[in-house]
């Protein structure tokens, strides 16, 4: 009997939760704010679904209800992707070590 592909996705999901668990525990507490902003940015990979929805319309009907929701979702996710990664970069650039000359 064949295994439902859903089971494979579920396996990936469960294993990723464990990876997330161990990886996040090793994040140093001083970087918890950048952690939140970067997780924000990466969870916006949901833009993948938005792009599929946005491109689903054919050339006559680019704007049907479904694709309009897709377009809006693209903008929302893009705000998060650019905003999230850039603000994380801005924060991380500020974390400096003690200067050696002191």
């Amino acid at each position: 009997m064949e295994i439902d592909p859903f089971i494979f996705r579920l396996s990936i999901f469960i294993l990723s939760i464990f990876i997330g668990y161990y990886v996040v525990w090793s994040v140093t507490p001083s970087l918890h704010t950048p952690l939140m902003s970067v997780t924000n940015a990466i969870s916006s990979v949901i833009i993948v679904g938005a792009i599929i929805a946005g491109l689903a319309g054919n050339s006559e009907t680019i704007f049907n209800t479904s694709s309009i929701f897709g377009f809006l979702a693209i903008s929302l996710a893009a705000i998060n992707i650019f905003g999230g990664f850039l603000v994380t970069q801005r924060m991380l650039a500020m974390y400096k070590k003690k200067k050696k000359d002191k």
Binding site: R9, S16, G20, V48
Partner: peptide, 28 residues
């Protein structure tokens, strides 16, 4: 939420990310 949508779209990147972010937030 992202993971739920990831299952719908059958998209591995979204499932992995959703699980990572979900457990990250839970630990915090």
């Amino acid at each position: 939420a992202a993971a739920g949508i990831g299952f719908t779209l059958e998209n591995t990147a979204l499932i992995i990310t959703g699980a990572l972010v979900g457990s990250s937030g839970a630990i915090l």
